[in-house]
Simulated scan of single mutants.
Amino acid sequence: MKLSRRGVIQAAAALGAVQVLGCASSTRAGDDKGGDAPGRPLNILILGGTRFLGPALVQAAQARGHTLTLFNRGKSNPGLFPDVEKLQGDRDPNKGEGLKALQGRKWDAVIDTSGYVPRIVKASAELLAPNVGQYVFISSVSVYKEMTKKDLNESDAVGTIPDETKEEIDDLSYGPLKALCERAAEAAMPGRTLNIRPGLIVGPDDGSDRFTYWPLRVAKGGEVLAPGDGEDPVQVIDARDLAAFIIRNVERRTQGIFNVTGPVQPMKMKGMLETLREATGSDARFTWVDAAFLEQQKVTAFGDMPAWVPRTGPESGIGAASIAKAIQAGLVTRPLADTARDTLTWFHALPKDRQEKLRSGLSEEREREVLAAWHQTKGTARAD
């Protein structure tokens, strides 16, 4: 089963290209769980910084005493963080003032949350190289070439594209372009680059609803269409845990490549949904529908069934990447139940019209249709 919208939407929604309504969530006590005290205060530049992972990074850095500067176009959530320095420009040096606002400035580190095109990452990395100690690039586990491989690790080969000058982002080019961005950053700042390869980023402020769908649906209760047989591995990481990992490794001047997803303890689809049922206190009853039937019904993995990747599919490795290296470097993930509850609290505070338009998952009507077809095929009665 081919994943739906894994390319552009995985990149854009996870790191901010989908418009987020509402404000960044406040950092709760205990969100920064690393076990180590902050080092000396740092001056950190964030390219982006006003959507999803960006605000989580700002909050994690401020909680540990660091000073932030945000560089972006000033179009998304401009009112966030009034106490933080903001520089305006464009990542593309060929547009408007480009990177002019960054010239002549010095920072201890830069975190690039918004790089998708190698030419543009190359421009910022080369400009900043003389005046910045470390370049942190937010990449993706989608960079890997062999997506069916279990326990994908940082030494595995990355995908390629015939034309490395291509700048159109689609399902085929997204991963290879991210890999080329990593290479561009490392070429500009050899030995001073930290490449972060996240999996599915989730939690409050996620404008894609790729995880939000599940706690919302489970909380409603009743018969829930559950994909596969419950044994497919699932990996998600709360944006706040990802941000905490990044900031701690900026403090340590860590370099190299890290798969950063979660949870730290392996999780399967059945475990995820049962955890959500317990966290929401619902009476949800799961009807497991196999991948072949869902494909016949044109129900897509990762789109109609968010976060789910069939373990026998062509991209099965995306749900089972190795995070051993990140754990060794201090990765800590909060309980999924906490992420679910915080996500629901955030979502229910959004405007009503936004709540009525989920951006991932099946509609109630479509779910009922697929469940009815499944029961008819199997000669079983509906669970409700």
Rank of each mutant, 00 (worst) to 15 (best):
A24V: 01
L53N: 09
V141D: 14
N72K: 06
V84N: 04
T50C: 11
S124Q: 06
L87G: 01
P130W: 03
F81L: 02
D31E: 13
Y144M: 01
S76N: 11
I9L: 15
P118E: 03
I44H: 13
I120D: 14
R119F: 01
Q19V: 08
G89H: 03
D32H: 06
L70G: 06
G39D: 04
A11V: 02
N94I: 00
S25C: 05
K149Y: 00
R28A: 15
L42E: 05
R64D: 05
A14Q: 12
P38V: 00
A14C: 12
Y116N: 06
C23M: 07
Y144T: 10
A123F: 01
G115Y: 09
L127N: 02
S114Q: 10
V18L: 13
L128M: 03
A123C: 08
P82K: 05
I44R: 08
D32C: 09
D108Q: 09
P93V: 12
L68T: 02
F81W: 04
L53W: 12
I120L: 11
S124V: 11
P78A: 11
I138V: 15
V143A: 05
V121E: 00
G104P: 10
L45W: 04
V143I: 14
S114V: 06
L102V: 09
M147R: 14
G65D: 14
G49L: 05
S114H: 00
R51E: 00
A37R: 12
P93E: 01
G22I: 06
P82R: 04
D83R: 01
Q10Y: 12
A56S: 15
V136H: 01
E146Y: 09
L53Y: 10
G30T: 04
G48R: 05
K122T: 04
P41A: 15
Q59P: 00
V84P: 03
G115S: 14
T148L: 04
L42T: 04
G89I: 11
A56E: 12
L127I: 04
A63D: 14
Q103S: 11
I46P: 00
R105M: 09
T148V: 13
L15M: 13
A13W: 13
G34W: 06
A60G: 10
L152T: 06
C23V: 04
R64A: 12
K33M: 09
K100Y: 02
N77I: 02
E126A: 10
F52A: 10
M147P: 00
T113Y: 10
A29N: 06
I46V: 14
T50S: 06
N77G: 05
A123D: 07
T113G: 07
Y116T: 07
N43P: 00
F52N: 12
Y144D: 03
V143K: 14
K150D: 08
T148C: 06
D31Q: 14
A37M: 12
A13M: 03
I9R: 12
Q88T: 03
V20N: 11
D112F: 02
A14T: 09
Q62W: 00
Q10L: 13
K86L: 02
Y116M: 06
L70E: 11
L80Q: 12
V84D: 01
G35N: 11
V143M: 07
R105K: 14
G104F: 03
A12C: 08
R28T: 11
C23E: 10
F81K: 05
Q59H: 14
L68K: 07
V132F: 00
T27A: 14
G74T: 09
E97A: 13
G104K: 05
L45A: 07
